[in-house]
């Protein structure tokens, strides 16, 4: 047993990488649910983003194009969800599950010729002397850009929901779509925009796995991250900063338990393996003791005639 061999700086730097896909997908889903839509298709949109981003990055040689394509791919798949739930008025839960199954199959089909291909490497932020600073250099100033994008998105979503009129309207639609409709807000249009944003975020999260974290394409490589992101939104009681906390906690303990194993710490592996789930749930449940409720119209179908 030798805990001293775990370098906390490297640990924090790699937990930020491990947490980013969950964070991106969860912050997108938070906006969707705040608008009163329950999209269970996060996993499907993530894997579609993963292959769309991978394919675009390989074909063009540019990771940036890859991430743009990933966001577009995730959003395009979420359009299907829009058609089903906002126009055909289908059940949100069933449509979301279908979206996940469809996304997994579609990505496997597109990805057939991309097995064993290497994506172009993504550059890390290099701030010269800042990146060379001890301790905070590797943590704060030498990650790749997507890690910062994730944090920036959380801040932006928080500010939008808390301080802006647009955020107020979005929340109104999520709390009572009938009242929002009576006030003259375009419920369907606002929800479509929220769903597309959620799809784009999930796509980015997926591409982060296929372009940065693993760098390769394999069928089903998101392996359930989308479901964890979905659960995280609920446990974070629909609050952006708690989503960030939850994602880092989950990513952090996942990485920490692997490091503890590698360092040979004498805690049974079974406890280590379950620890990310348990600790994340316990912390977020304690935090959400202040009776934060789900958006009142979450998952309900809206039609202007009713």
């Amino acid at each position: 047993m030798d805990i001293s061999s775990i370098n906390p700086v490297l640990l924090i730097a790699s937990l930020m990488v491990a947490a980013t896909p969950i964070l991106l997908a969860a912050i997108g889903e938070l906006v969707v649910e705040k608008a009163g839509v329950l999209n269970l298709g996060v996993e499907g949109m993530m894997i579609t983003g993963a292959i769309a981003g991978f394919a675009a990055a390989v074909e063009t040689g540019s990771p940036f194009v890859g991430f743009v394509a990933a966001a577009a791919g995730g959003a395009a798949l979420s359009m299907l969800f829009v058609l089903l739930t906002q126009f055909a008025l289908a059940n949100h839960v069933a449509s979301g599950l279908a979206l996940t199954l469809f996304g997994l199959g579609l990505s496997a089909l597109i990805g057939q010729s991309y097995g064993g291909v290497k994506p172009p490497p993504i550059g890390k932020l290099d701030l010269g002397p800042l990146s060379d600073l001890p301790v905070i250099g590797p943590i704060l100033f030498s990650q790749d850009l997507v890690v910062y994008l994730g944090i920036a998105l959380v801040a932006a979503v928080w500010a939008l929901l808390k301080f802006t009129r647009a955020g107020l309207v979005l929340r109104a639609v999520g709390e009572s779509h009938d009242a929002a409709h009576a006030l003259g807000y375009k419920v369907v249009r606002i929800r479509i925009l929220a769903i597309l944003f959620g799809g784009a975020c999930a796509g980015l999260g997926g591409a982060y796995i296929s372009l940065v974290r693993v760098p390769q394409w394999t069928d089903g490589m998101t392996a359930g991250v989308g479901w964890i992101a979905l659960a995280l939104v609920v446990f974070a009681s629909w609050r952006p900063w708690r989503v960030l906390l939850g994602a880092y906690l989950f990513g952090g303990i996942t990485v920490l338990q692997l490091n503890l194993q590698a360092a040979g710490v004498a805690i049974p592996v079974e406890y280590l393996a379950m620890s990310p789930y348990i600790i994340t749930i316990v912390v977020l449940v304690i935090l959400s003791a202040d009776k934060n409720k789900a958006p009142a119209s979450l998952g309900r179908i809206f039609h202007a005639s009713q």
Partner: peptide, 27 residues
């Protein structure tokens, strides 16, 4: 020799994290 158990046959992200954890420890 350091052994890390990932409890899965196939989960690229987890396999990648485990590899990174080993590298971070000087493996």
């Amino acid at each position: 020799l350091s052994v890390v158990w990932v409890n899965t046959w196939f989960d690229p992200a987890k396999e990648a994290d485990a590899t990174q954890a080993l590298i971070d420890q000087g493996v």
